[in-house]
Amino acid sequence: MQLYNNLSNEERAALIAEAGKERLTISFYKYAKIGNPELFRNNLFIKWNALDVLGRIYVATEGINAQLSVPADHFKAFKKHLDSISFLENVRLNIAIEHDNFSFLKLKIKVRNKIVADGLNDDTFDVTNKGVHVNAKKFNELIEDPNTVLVDMRNHYESEIGHFKNAITPDVDTFRESLDLIEEDLREHKEDKKLVMYCTGGIRCEKASAYYKHKGFKNVFQLEGGIINYVRQIEAEGLENKFIGKNFVFDERRSERISDDVIANCHQCGEPADLHTNCANEACHLLFIQCDSCKSKMDNCCSTNCQEIIKLPYKEQKELRKGQGNSNDIFKKGRADHLPYKKDLRNIFETLKK
C-alpha cells in the first residue's frame, strides 16, 4: 500500500483548482506517549490521504505536531477520526485566520525524535509541570502589569514581521537557542517578575514553561493556543488587539495579517515590507523579506548572482547544483551578508539590565 505522495506540487495545485472546493488550514499539537510512532504514522497517512488531507505532520514518542489543510466538506469526517484516537479526542484545533486552498500541496507525515526541536533532555525535568494557560482576556491584563516580562518564543524572522507590543523578541535562529538565552538574561527576575510567553500555536510554550519552572521561575504563564487562538478570541469577544503586524506561519501563505502595521523592511532596499519570499534559485532558497518592487526587479531572487543562475537553462542549473549541499545562508533566514537591510543583531535585554 502506498504510504507516500506521488504527485508534484504543480499536479496537486491543478487538482485543487479543478475541484474548486474550499479547504480549511488547521494546526494542532498534543504531547502524549506513543508506543509505536511508525505504525501510528502509517495509520494516519492511510486515513488522512483518503480524506484528501494535505500538510506537514511530525510524530514522535512524545506526541504529534500537525499543520494541515482539510477539504471543508471532509472536516466532520476528519474530526470524527481525531476523536476516535483517545489522546486526540477534543484536541484544540487552531483554524487559520486567513484561508488559502493552496496552503499545503502534499501530505507529509514524518517520524521524528521530537515534535519540536528543543534540544532538551526531557528526563532531567518534569515536562508535565507546565505554566498557567491564559486566555486572550487574561493575557491582555497580564501584559499591562509592570511586573510582567513578556517573551516571544519564536525565532527572529517570525517576530520581525509581527509581535505583541512591548514583547522581548530574542534574536535567535532556532527555538533551542532561545531557551538558555532567556533563562540566563532573566536570572535576576525569577521570583519578582511574571514570565509570560507566547508563540504561534502554543506548542513551543508547552515545553518552555515546564523548563523555566524547573529552572526556578516562580510565576510562569503561557498564551493558550498561541497567536492564532488569541486573534480568534479578541474578534469573538471584542477585546483590544495588542498584536502588531503579521503572524508568520509555516505553510505556503507564510503569514497572516493581524493588524495593518508594517513593522519590517525589505532586506534589499530598506522600504517598509513584511512579505517573506524564498529565493527563486533552487540552490539558494534563502528566506528573506522582499518588497514588490524588488521582487519584480530581482525576479524573486536574493542577489544578482542568483538572478543570473535562474536565467540559465534548467539543465545547466541542475548541473551547477550537482554535488552541492544547500548554501549555509538558507539557515540564516534573512541574515545573509549580501542583504544590506537584514535585521541587525542586538541585545534585547538591555532595558531589563538597566
Rank of each mutant, 00 (worst) to 15 (best):
I64M: 05
K332S: 15
N241G: 03
K108M: 06
L120D: 10
K114C: 08
V59T: 03
D83S: 02
I161N: 05
H214Y: 15
V53Y: 04
E282A: 06
E38L: 12
F125I: 05
E18H: 14
L195C: 14
F40C: 07
L179T: 10
I309S: 03
M1R: 05
V151C: 09
I203V: 13
S103C: 09
R335H: 12
L51I: 01
I263T: 07
C279A: 00
G201P: 06
R112K: 14
K218P: 08
L68T: 01
S327M: 11
K297S: 14
E22A: 10
D180V: 11
L107F: 05
P146H: 10
S327N: 09
A13T: 12
N94D: 13
L286K: 11
S86W: 04
P71A: 01
V70W: 09
I289R: 00
C301Q: 09
N101K: 05
I34D: 11
E177F: 08
A96P: 00
V196C: 06
E206M: 02
E177W: 08
L352N: 06
G55R: 08
S103Y: 01
A50G: 05
G245S: 03
S296V: 08
S8V: 02
K332T: 15
Q290M: 13
N155E: 05
I109L: 08
K322E: 15
T277S: 12
V111C: 02
D73V: 03
D171C: 03
S69T: 08
L39K: 10
H267N: 12
G20H: 04
D83L: 04
C269F: 03
H156I: 10
E38P: 00
F175Y: 15
S84L: 12
K137D: 09
K242V: 07
P37Q: 01
V172D: 01
T25I: 03
A280Y: 11
F331A: 14
N42Y: 06
Y314H: 12
K311S: 13
N49S: 14
R232N: 13
K353S: 14
G245Q: 01
D180H: 14
S293L: 07
K80T: 14
D122M: 06
S259Q: 08
R232T: 14
N49V: 00
N265E: 10
F248E: 10
D73A: 02
A210T: 11
R232Y: 03
K218R: 14
D173G: 15
E160V: 12
C199D: 09
F175A: 08
H133L: 07
C306D: 15
Q290D: 08
C294T: 09
N347M: 02
E184D: 12
E177C: 07
L15H: 02
H285C: 10
W48N: 04
Q67A: 02
K215H: 11
N241E: 03
K218V: 06
I182M: 07
